[in-house]
Amino acid sequence: MNIFRLTADMTHLMSVIVLLLKIHTIKSCAGISLKTQELYAIVFTCRYLDIFTDFISFYNTIMKVIFLWTSFSIVWYMRYHKIVRRSYDKDQDTFRHVFLMLPCLVLALLINERFTFKEVMWTFSFYLEAVAILPQLVLLQRTRNIDNLTGQYIFLLGAYRALYILNWIYRYVTEPNYVHWIPWMSGLVQTLLYGDFFYYYFLSWKNNVKLQLPA
């Protein structure tokens, strides 16, 4: 464990907490894409298949449980909670995420470290996470008023992966033959997709104005 990875995991945890706070306290999911939340639930399910078979550390297991539990809770809130679901904008959140899942699955079947079920699912989870934010970014461009919590949620979600890239650089430098091209390439694509959001988020923070993405 290194400071980059710990900060990254805490940033990721913070993003989930910010979103749960928004949904649980003000009972609203306005501006949040259910499609992205569903994709993340799938990402964690496919990535943590080894939660019962490979014990790495208490930290690792606890964090896996937290990410699985929170991602499914958020999907449940947005789909079934009688108050929260009313603020879900299904007419705007129309990204067909199955068109993201299929190519990722095919790619995972073609490019993986070992052709086993768990390994292909693990690889699929990285390819899928790289593009999981797309429905949310599309929704942001459609909904004019982005509230602060939503903006913070997306910023933290993007920042966690950027911090993981620092972690991978650190581990590549300090650990002999630590090479994992699949997470590295996926994480790079994922972080680049946040590029313009980070730019507009920084502008809104610098000029102290409301966050607005160009249409």
Binding site: I56, S57, K64
Partner: peptide, 10 residues
């Protein structure tokens, strides 16, 4: 014996 590289990251 191919040591299974531990997937120690989340």
């Amino acid at each position: 014996l191919q040591v299974q590289i531990k997937k120690d990251e989340l």
